[in-house]
Amino acid sequence: MIKQKEESLGLDNTRRPRNGWGKRKFFHQFWKQLVIWICLLFALFPVVWVISAAFDPSNSIAGQRLIPPNPTLENFRQLFDRKAQPFLIWLYNSFKVAGINSLLVVSVTALAGYAFSRMRFRGRRAGLIAIILVQMFPQMLMMVALYLAVFWLGQYLPFLGLDTHAGLILVYMGGAMGVNVWMTKNYFDTIPYSLEESAMLDGATPLQMLVYIIIPLALPILVVVFFLQFIAIYSEYVLARVLLTSEDKLTMAVGLQSFIGDQYGKRWGIFSAAALISTFPVLILFWLLQKQLVTGLTSGAVKN
């Protein structure tokens, strides 16, 4: 079975017997390499350019060289010293909002996923479908309503109002269910019942079984849900922009945009340094989660 799958990886030319590198084959490969290198150029030049700019003290996008003539860490130093645009606070805010939100999301999806996986009740199927259907409408579409609702809420509960992180997290919690519940439910489905059966004989309640048996076993999927949610919230721009206003409350996404504005001639180097630092956490997470991301992406298509 596995062997067959391995073989089916190749598509057109690969299945021909390998009889060394014929002339035609060589040109074929050469051509392929060339095309890929052109695509790599397109894919990587913005990244390379930003890395270079981060170490280039000239600070302007105009006249920047690919390899900075006298590289320094000046941009990073200035970035951390800035008082007007508190970069480190933005980074902290982003981590705080994304972290708390992801923790809450994991909690509510683990609970819901457990019910959908282990219990049978009327409306179960409809509930699963409704959850995914509602998710088709991104919260961004309701930004006006959310803005007004949070404004109104803030008049009675100031700590949940506009320009508060708690309010923003509350809004983000609307996106907690959806795909996350499906992912956890599908994973729970693969865990055998035998452990819970014996736990039941010992008199455990379903909640205890979830906490003491399922969650330790399903840790991998919960970690994946946590980090996927983390990346999504970390990168969210619109709602944060609508709800947050004061400089020291902004998240990285909003802060970075307000920082660079149109000043590519004056702040390019510092911006690049900030861009590198704020990209780094996501890049690491992405690299760690690559496999899950890819299977998650393609599951809709390739399952069957």
Partner: peptide, 9 residues
Amino acid sequence: FILPGTLFL
């Protein structure tokens, strides 16, 4: 089990 998430939704 489903209620907490559903309330947010």
